[in-house]
């Protein structure tokens, strides 16, 4: 089973790196990270903070775009081009197919995030002329960005099994936005004083992915460490949520009939 999943993942990776949009996004992200040096020069006293904020935000935003643009077509393309029939006619289970697709895209995102992170450190080195051990703190933020992207890929994959690419993109992006407002949604519910609304908003709070907990860029820009418990709990949260999404995607895909 592992070999079959690995084989699908590798093929998905190869297929993803052929996407021209990927290179455009990486180049644009690297340009933006480089531009942070210029942006810092028109401000006062926060040149490095700007570079860290803009650099990590670029990695996050462009990673999100990559995850959505490629993730939404993962399964849809196979169905649309009817290549799904030749894949499923081989000794591959539907679950293995979904898992392989997910891992393939995740690998693509890890490598692209790695390239953007290298670009970020190159810009930091250019600005500071030297790198210190404290600069490795940014890797904590990069790790959290990857955890966020892992969930986003899961969402995109799930919607890709259900809907068209455009609708999948809309759903995934909407959930990403809502996932950043979950604290507020729960707070609104508490403020209404209505038990029904409060239960509803609490339900939404626990049901939807909470992306707000992964936002540590500003903290890192000020040289503050991410607490150890947050590293562990967020890793666990992402793992659990990704498991839920992949399981749901497999369930949907198992039930799906192809004509």
């Amino acid at each position: 089973m592992t070999r079959r999943v690995a084989s699908i993942a590798l093929n998905t990776f190869k297929e993803s790196v052929r996407e021209r949009v990927l290179y455009n996004l990486v180049v644009f992200a690297l340009l933006l990270i480089g531009a942070a040096i210029l942006f810092g020069s028109i401000s006062v006293g926060i040149e490095q903070i700007i570079l860290v904020n803009l650099g990590l935000s670029s990695i996050s935003v462009f990673g999100l775009l990559m995850a959505i643009f490629i993730g939404i077509g993962l399964v849809w393309k196979e169905i649309d081009k009817r290549t799904i029939f030749s894949i499923l006619s081989k000794p591959v289970r539907r679950g293995e197919f979904i898992l392989g697709k997910y891992l393939g895209l995740l690998l693509t995102l890890i490598i692209n995030t790695g390239i953007m992170t290298l670009g970020f450190y190159a810009a930091l080195l250019y600005q500071k002329r030297t790198l210190a051990l404290a600069d490795l703190l940014a890797l904590e933020a990069v790790y959290f960005i990857l955890l966020q992207l892992a969930i986003v890929v899961g969402l995109a994959l799930l919607f890709s099994c259900i809907s068209t690419p455009i609708l999948s993109a809309v759903f995934t992006f909407s959930l990403y936005v809502v996932g950043n407002f979950l604290d507020d949604i729960r707070w609104f519910g508490q403020e209404t004083g209505s038990a029904v609304v409060e239960s509803l908003t609490s339900g939404i709070y626990y049901l939807l992915p909470n992306f707000g907990d992964f936002n540590v860029i500003s903290q890192i820009a000020h040289g503050e460490r991410v607490p150890g418990y947050l590293l562990i709990s967020n890793s666990l949260y992402a793992l659990l949520y990704v498991s839920i999404l992949i399981s749901a995607a497999i369930l949907v895909f198992e039930e799906r009939e192809f004509k």
Partner: peptide, 21 residues
Amino acid sequence: RRLSLGHEGLLADIYWTRVVQ
């Protein structure tokens, strides 16, 4: 801050640069 989707640090930098300018 709410609308920044976790990028409030970057927005603060932009606003600070605006203050300076």
